[in-house]
């Protein structure tokens, strides 16, 4: 059941979006999020939606794949919508109702905003390998090294975490099955007894995670790892013409959104 988690999943491909430098994509996602929050009216939202759909088409990510990513968030989306429907003042849909036209419109916009936010960030993780992503992040944050921020160490940890998520998920599944076979019950009982029932899973999981970490450290040292100093990278990042073009387009998009906001659209 835990196998369905798509967190940080990468779908290899060879589209323009896949080929963009990870740094470009990281910057564009930030630009996109700022632009999204500029949307104030229907035209603004329509503009962001069109841009999002365009990017999806360019990256050849199927809408069904995207929907799978959004699915775990459906509850939060629905809740936000409901709250907005009931807590926005304005003209009631029928006299005496608390549901207002403004509320419905706002609920719709809020739903759209969350969906677009998720879609935009998933476009990044779906089209960029975790290694490229953390490498890109390391390069972008490079100036912080001067302030003694351990940028290399932080990004290395991130990529390790991503590498071991599937392994730990598989392991959790296995331990759960083994304890169930010994009669452990994770589904019934009070909250406290259920929390207690997690111990037989958590303890072995921690023990093995520490063992893994230990062995991994030895294996990394054996392969001459000695921190970020003097390291080279096989995959060099270089900003191509398409990266600059994409950044210019991103800037234009943001400017357009700011103008739309000024106009109140």
């Amino acid at each position: 059941m835990l196998k369905n988690v798509t967190l940080g999943q990468y779908f290899p491909g060879d589209t323009v979006v896949h080929r963009l430098d990870p740094r470009t994509k990281l910057i564009l996602v930030i630009v996109y999020i700022i632009a999204l929050f500029q949307a104030a009216g229907w035209i603004g939202y329509a503009a962001v939606t069109v841009v999002t759909l365009l990017c999806m088409a360019l990256s050849q990510i199927k809408p069904s794949t995207m929907f799978k990513g959004v699915k775990p968030m459906l509850f939060i989306i629905a809740l936000t919508a409901l709250l907005n429907i009931f807590y926005t003042t304005g003209t009631p849909v029928r006299p005496g109702w608390i549901v207002t036209w403004e509320g419905i419109a706002r609920a719709f916009q809020m739903m759209l905003r969350i969906v677009l936010l998720i879609t935009g960030t998933f476009l990044l993780t779906y089209t960029t390998s975790p290694i490229a992503l953390t490498d890109g992040l390391e390069r972008l944050l490079n100036p912080l090294k001067k302030l003694h921020v351990p940028v290399h160490e932080m990004t290395m940890m991130m990529s390790m975490a991503l590498r071991f998520i599937p392994t730990l998920i598989a392991e959790t599944d296995k331990i759960m099955s083994a304890q169930k076979a010994r009669g452990a019950d994770f589904e019934t009982g009070s909250l406290i007894s259920r929390a207690k029932a997690l111990l037989p899973i958590l303890v072995p999981l921690f023990v093995s995670a520490f063992k893994r970490a230990d062995e991994l450290a030895v294996a990394m040292e054996s392969r001459c790892y000695h921190g970020g100093e003097g390291r080279t990278r096989m995959k060099q990042m270089h900003m191509a013409a398409r990266d600059y073009a994409a950044l210019v387009l991103g800037a234009l998009f943001l400017a357009g959104m700011i103008v739309l906001k000024r106009l109140g659209l």
């Binding site: 392991e171 296995k174 331990i175 099955s177 083994a178 304890q179 076979a181 010994r182 009669g183 452990a184 019950d185 111990l199 037989p200 303890v203 072995p204 023990v207 093995s208």
Partner: peptide
């Protein structure tokens, strides 16, 4: 059912308690 590499499922403080986990359940 004894799984492959079953030693990974041990979790109690003592050997006694671990063996007792099944019968206790």
């Amino acid at each position: 059912l004894v799984f492959q590499y079953p030693e990974y499922q041990l979790f109690e403080e003592t050997v006694y308690k671990d063996i007792a986990f099944g019968p206790t359940n």
